[in-house]
Amino acid sequence: MKPIIQVKDVHFRYSGEEHLPPVLNGASLEIEEGSFVVILGHNGSGKSTLAKHLNGILIPNEGCVLVDGMDTRDASKLLDIRRTVGMVFQNPDNQMVASVVEDDVAFAPENLGIPPKEIRSRVDEALKLVDMYEYRLHAPHLLSGGQKQRVAIAGVIAMRPRCIVLDEPTAMLDPAGRQEVIGTIKRLCRENGITIVLITHHMNEAVDADKVFVMSNGRVISQGTPKEVFSNVEFLKSEGLTVPDTAELLYKLRLSGIDLPAEALSIEECAQAIAAALK
């Protein structure tokens, strides 16, 4: 499949930080349309800065970002780029503009100048997709964290984007909220074909991804399927990351001389592998 996003050797420094090392230092990656992609990296690895490049909020100092073939440096394409790649951020409170859920979801289509009748149908559809339709008349500040974040996702879906980038959307949520959000985005990817780029440091959220990118010091240092990436435990640890507990356990047992596969990531696979090794 053709890539919907191409990041080519991007270098970036915030203005006023010329004395510091660049935040992005030759980052390159390609994201295939319809896939579920996870970007991992410790705080300060440049992953949030990279996210802001994917819809033209930030423009590379060097290199380029292509969204469906459109260069983010081309200011005339900016709106088309932003309606193609939607963004959801960490703090759900700081991305809501309206005091009623459905008005908030309508914000993006209103900006796009879509006729009122169609906005109405898009808003209803988006709220149903994230399972928040019955809350459409609620005030956002009275919702739970997971619900707020799903409204934020609906606000992006209402643009009918082909890709949604989520920058640590679960960092401020409790386990129940985290599950709601992760479940929702996985469904959007698998059932609605929307490309998902999830930026996170919760390793367990990466287990079901089609592809994982690991970032460090402003560049992509490792990529592959979750099994490939998480089998390299020492390498990830040296980057200040952990691996899912299943991979950690297998790794520790291997170190102690038990012959186990490196790439059993689900609880089931992990338990099966250990049981087989003990037989």
């Binding site: 367990n204 299943t246 338990a271 250990i274 049981a275 003990l278």
Partner: peptide, 16 residues
């Protein structure tokens, strides 16, 4: 529950 608890439970089901 911690993932380790889940793995342990599954292992017991598998006879370990």
């Amino acid at each position: 529950v911690p993932v380790a608890t889940d793995i342990a439970a599954r292992l017991r089901e598998l006879g370990v």
